[in-house]
Design a protein around this nucleic acid. Sequence first.
DNA 1: AAGCGAAGTTTACAATGTCAACATCGAGGG
DNA 2: CCCTCGATGTTGACATTGTAAACTTCGCTT
Lengths: 208, 208
Amino acid sequence: MGEIRVREVPRRYHHGDLRAALLEAAEEIIERDGVQALTLRAAARAVGVSHAAPANHFGDLTGLLSELAAIGYRRFAHALQAAKSSAEGSGERGAPAMGRAYVNFARQQAGMFALMFRSERLDMSRPSLRAAIDEARQALRDAASMRPKDAAPPSPLARAAEAVALWSLVHGFATLLLDGRLDGILSALPAGDDVDTLLAAILAPRHR
Amino acid sequence: MGEIRVREVPRRYHHGDLRAALLEAAEEIIERDGVQALTLRAAARAVGVSHAAPANHFGDLTGLLSELAAIGYRRFAHALQAAKSSAEGSGERGAPAMGRAYVNFARQQAGMFALMFRSERLDMSRPSLRAAIDEARQALRDAASMRPKDAAPPSPLARAAEAVALWSLVHGFATLLLDGRLDGILSALPAGDDVDTLLAAILAPRHR
DNA sequence: AAGCGAAGTTTACAATGTCAACATCGAGGG
DNA sequence: CCCTCGATGTTGACATTGTAAACTTCGCTT
């Protein structure tokens, strides 16, 4: 397998920007070989430093995973915000656009998504991670709460239910999809239908 | 912390039913300390055998995890079937009863649920696991497809969308709940409302 | 110019999965 | 009845990993 280790330059004692290099290498490992393949030593090898070097920047493995997840959440937030803007521009409802963005992010950055939502080793008390998660949550909330200016505002419970229902729906779909749990259903779909049409059908007003 | 190791009897060389004992100990470890705490050696310690003994029954760690997950899926299938029967008896629609059963299983056997759906180390080609998953999928399908005998049968895409939507909804809810992602929302709920009422609101016809 | 502290390295240790060689024991065939 | 043979356990070993401690290098500040 990969174990890429580029290093033409003679290797100065100090790397220059090891922190960024490690995060970059870590992401590559995660996307290529999965979250469980990301070890401190593998990341160190990938950038050509000693196995204990990462400790200077991240403390322990949890630190590296958490900082990388924070990057993922910031990207995630931007993707959701972009979906909201795009939906506003085209007059579309918020939910379908948000749902597409959510699932597309999960599909295109599967390793990162798994790290963000399935890793037991994230330190949720880390400020950078908390902030990034809040950013994403805010974006999600904004996109989801785009409602046509129609009837009376719903009760607090109904409002929470609506938000949680949409989040659960798209998150469950993304999770099941990445885990291959939908493979059987997908391959049994009529010709011309695929993940995208299935998701669209799920997010269609008819179903919500 | 526990590291319980009961062993009053003098320890015969052969255990008697080590396979079952290991599975039992493994489940206890998983529920008490989480999936990542389940190691071959920890399970062996818990039942008082040598660290290499489990290999005789499960091959490797993946084998133990997979067999335990198969037990979980069989239990899960039974819980869903029971929910369906109960719904049929009371004339309730299938979806809410199934959703409750799904989420309750996840809450009451959180470690097992995590093993079943979040572990990267399950061997999906293992016949016992495949069979157990199929059993659960069938039960889920049965419960979900309970529909009032009303309008015309939907198109294949719509039918798939309906099933996947329900599954995604409850699975996403369970996953987010176990990951603590709903904690903020839950604590902001009006007095008297809790997880159950929130789930009920989500599964109410209004929302589907 | 000096040296101080951040950034890297080396060494070491415990835990784990896994393999190989060996020990034990019970059941079934002579 | 015994005896052997295969399943079940044990011991020992090895590579990998996270992590800590002691040491080294080097850019920046005073």
